[in-house]
């Protein structure tokens, strides 16, 4: 009997707690004239890759005072969950809601028309569905891939440069194709084995893929997406050079990371914010590239890169800049 009484007591206590919780909620909308941005993204906000690039950019805008509040929902790999989050942010009155994942396009297309006063941004993509409250943005990651591919070919002694990819889609495919093209521009006879491991998450498989590429003779590697941290580790152990992308990966292996292509979304995001403040809610496509400083090759100062190779890289970047 005592047992039961205790249980009942707990039940009432918890119910009381919940009731108290509900009544104490204020939820004051807080539309005090500031500019509020929300982002929904598929992986963790510190993945040293795709998601981190946008979160870092937004945090910078917040500390620069361009926007007043940044809300992040990360790890939203279920598209329908992302849809719920996007809808909720929109109805919470956020001024700009960013759907940071190509796979979110389908639901965004259905949600955006329901909130004509809210501005949405969708990336990476080149499509705004003809809606005037949707911006789209993408990264010309093939540009950086090409630049680093050229340098990789110049650094390779074995004429073999390997690439580890996740699933052959979107931004990853763009980068890998660009990198491969760059290698072949510099050295048409080079061998460029590419290993897509068919997973964005399997770190162990990415590391074995790197081993396999090294086994095939590669002495310079690159790779894209969040699971490459495993491949960088193998490159480090085997003393093989590495080119990174999406974020600066020097910290992963200071000895062997030559350079990283880093995404800087701040510029185009700031333009978007300015537009939204001026009442233009969308309808435009933004691309970050070398010409608008959205893409930057960040070199590892700790790595002793020969000057002629560095020159090759700088020349390639300059070409992209002059072409616009």
């Amino acid at each position: 009997m005592k047992n039961v009484t205790t249980k009942m007591a707990i039940l009432f206590a918890v119910v009381a707690l919940i009731a108290a919780a509900c009544s104490s909620s204020d939820d004051s909308g807080s539309d005090d004239g500031g500019f509020r941005v929300a982002v929904v993204a598929p992986s963790a906000s510190n993945d040293l890759a795709f998601t981190q690039s946008i979160v870092d950019a937004l945090n910078k805008l917040e500390s620069d005072g361009v926007v007043s509040e940044v809300a992040v929902t990360d790890g939203t790999f279920v598209v329908d969950d992302a849809a719920v989050a996007i809808r909720d942010y929109a109805s919470d009155g956020y001024d700009l809601v960013i759907a940071h994942g190509s796979q979110y396009g389908g639901p965004l297309q259905e949600i955006a028309p329901d909130f004509p006063e809210t501005s949405f941004a969708w990336g990476t993509s080149a499509d705004t569905f003809g809606l005037d409250n949707v911006y789209s943005y993408e990264a010309a990651s093939d540009e950086g891939g090409r630049v680093m591919g050229i340098m990789a070919a110049a650094l390779s002694q074995t004429n073999t440069v390997g690439i580890v990819g996740p699933i052959e889609v979107g931004d990853a495919k763009l980068y890998v194709d660009g990198f491969k093209a760059g290698v072949l521009v510099q050295n048409p006879s080079a061998d460029v084995p590419v290993n897509y491991i068919d997973s964005f998450s399997d770190v162990a498989l990415a590391s074995e893929a790197a081993s396999s590429l090294i086994g095939a003779g590669a002495d310079v590697l690159s790779g894209t997406a969040q699971m490459v941290v495993g491949a960088v580790g193998v490159a480090k152990t085997d003393g093989v050079l590495w080119f990174g992308t999406q974020a600066n990966q020097t910290s992963l292996a200071p000895e062997i990371v030559v350079a990283s292509q880093v995404y800087h979304w701040e510029g185009i995001l700031e333009e978007m914010v300015t537009n939204v403040k001026d009442g233009k809610l969308g309808g435009e496509l933004y691309v970050i590239n070398f010409a608008n400083d959205g893409l930057v090759i960040e070199y590892n100062d700790g790595f002793d890169l020969p000057d002629d190779v560095r020159q090759l890289g700088d020349d390639a970047v300059a070409r992209f800049k002059s072409e616009g």
Binding site: D47, S201, V203, A204, L205, M227, V229, T237
Partner: peptide, 17 residues
């Protein structure tokens, strides 16, 4: 062993192992 062999940790490192 998995983490120390890879030299890194990441969300869902085991990937269903």
């Amino acid at each position: 062993v998995l983490a120390i062999s890879l030299g890194i940790f990441q969300q869902n490192l085991t990937n269903g192992a």
